[in-house]
Nucleic acid binder design. Structure first.
Lengths: 330, 330
DNA sequence: TGCCTGTGAGAGACCGCTCCCTCTGCCTGT
DNA sequence: ACAGGCAGAGGGAGCGGTCTCTCACAGGCA
């Protein structure tokens, strides 16, 4: 029942442990006949190296931690984002032959556990997914002396990150609306304590200002309900608006609903554009035009950043471009 | 720079390695003053036990593998399901003080890697999320001698699982439509090679048969597009139908769109009911009535099943009940 | 007082692997 | 023919913990 060890394989093959180890690890300084006899023994015994023993001596684990730092009802908990990001990361690590330990840091208690685990030498590096720029976790982890990268902009020193060009994406959206002939373009913002939200608002503002137009702003918090509410507010404040740029798709979906209830036709009366291009954006009616956030690409880039860091390469921040996906709502 | 070891802590505290080990592991047979002096040394040095060394000797890792077995475009890849399941599992394992290694088995190659990894003794058990009853992975993993449970029904022997009461849920849906006074109730099925899909179809058929009514069936594959297409088919086959039970929400959303395009009002002309109650079900207009699949509860139950199995308890299959969430579409 | 029991600390073997070092034996050059 | 070099195999010391076993010592009882 017990799994065979290196020693057993060596005995079976009639060679030393060292030789078996060399064969297992694909070293070249092994004579072909030794290699063959070892391989046969490995096959016959169904030998698989013990990971813990190997880790202990090599001090490598080929395992990376993915830490998702967000309260249970937070922004990342938004299904599409979580799913897309985690799966993309997983695929990329798989390709690189690494393993992924997933940790959710939803409370202070679990944050402590995360730091302890990281300190325990179980992983070679950490990929952090945390939207709040003020999250203390990046800093705490970086202090452990392990390579740490962030899937998102972070205020922590020494933590390289991959970020979206949020301002650029917002500009893309606003320019698109202008090209469609819209004159009174409002925006629904995300929670302004998030970089994303601020940058998207900045992009919107700057683009309008450059064309001599006025900003019309309502605050949201990236949830669907807040989008619906903000839209109500906007209609009240400025009944003549003819376009809305929502800082994410969920809020845009909420806005669509309010507009529908208010009897405004989309896009005829009011054009609506979202941000992120989540799956649900194509389900709405009318289907939502959106700025695509290349989450999967961003995740992949973050993995490469981390792998590079582990291999000792120097690394700085990376900015991802985004593109516009035009559907029926504009 | 090097992290301190047990031995260093022992030296600092002026006691033996054994005593430090006892304190670290919370054994009770330690005199208070020894305990204190050890704790102080641990604090001062910032000692954290080395995981690999501990694993090596205890043969426990406190780590469980979560294997998601599904092709890239498969059913589980559906965002909401993946996200809800993975997060619920993660939370529950966190509470139990266990770690989670996430592995996607999307190809034969990665399946092989999964089996090898499992065999490498890196984990104490495996939680499998695989919708295809014919998946070879459950069997292959069970053969490794490690505890394995499945998040879903599986055909493999010796693999306990947690499943939904799919037939019961379908019956719930159909009875609801009957109570609403619907007479011609159609269904859109999932891919029939999946247990889920077959059971939901069975529940639908049986309930109608019991009330002396005829089944009207169109085949789908759990995607939104297939739902839209199946709905077109149904309208053509039976223009007088007044209700549709879709075997999942995505297909129901597709059906809603087709009905809208065909000028049928929902629920006035045709009532629509989905299955799973994904987040998007409440975003549609009209909001979708759906049979709630308690994914999170199911995930939690699966974790407990696995933990029980690891602790040596005997375990059989578990069936989860579901409930109806009535919204605007019926 | 002497013996026995029980409590709690210390010593050290061992988990399974890697990797450094030593050693053998063959090939090459002069 | 012999020294020198080198390829390649084996030996064995750790890696950092756990856990069994031994041992010292204190207290209880006849």
């Amino acid at each position: 029942m017990k799994r065979p060890t290196l020693e057993v394989v060596a005995a079976r093959a009639g060679v030393s442990k060292s030789s078996v180890s060399r064969v297992i690890n694909g070293e070249t300084t092994v004579a072909p006949q030794i290699r063959d006899v070892v391989m046969r023994a490995v096959q016959e015994l169904g030998y698989v190296p013990n990971g813990a023993a190997r880790n202990l001596v090599t001090r490598r684990t080929d395992t990376l931690a993915v830490v998702v730092s967000d309260p249970p009802q937070g922004v990342i908990s938004d299904d599409p984002l979580f799913s897309a990001v985690v799966r993309a990361i997983s695929r990329e690590l798989e390709t690189a032959g690494k393993r992924l330990v997933l940790m959710l840091a939803e409370s202070d208690q679990s944050r402590t556990r995360v730091v302890e685990y990281i300190a325990g030498g179980h992983v070679d590096g950490v990929l952090l997914v945390a939207l709040h720029g003020t999250d203390p976790l990046p800093g705490a982890l970086a202090r452990q002396g392990l390579p740490v990268v962030s899937f998102n902009r972070t205020s922590a020193q020494d933590v390289p990150y991959v970020a979206l060009d949020n301002a650029g994406g917002a500009a893309l959206a606003v320019r698109h609306l202008l090209e469609r002939g819209r004159r009174r373009i409002a925006t629904i913002t995300g929670p302004l304590e998030l970089y994303e939200a601020r940058e998207r608002l900045d992009g919107y503002r700057r683009t309008l200002r450059d064309t001599g137009r006025r900003s019309i702003v309502a605050l949201g918090d990236f949830t669907r309900a807040s989008g619906a509410e903000a839209m109500r507010q906007l209609l009240e404040d400025d009944p003549d608006l003819d376009a809305v740029f929502a800082a994410n798709d969920l809020m845009a979906i909420g806005a669509l609903r309010t507009l529908h209830q208010a009897g405004r036709r989309v896009p005829d009366d009011v054009a609506v554009i979202g941000f992120d291009d989540i799956e649900a954006a194509s389900y709405t009616s009318p289907a939502l035009t959106s700025v695509r956030s290349p989450m999967a690409d961003q995740a992949t880039a973050t993995v490469h950043l981390l792998l590079g860091l582990i291999d000792g390469g120097p690394t700085g921040p990376v900015i991802m471009p985004n593109e516009l996906v035009v559907r029926e709502s504009t």
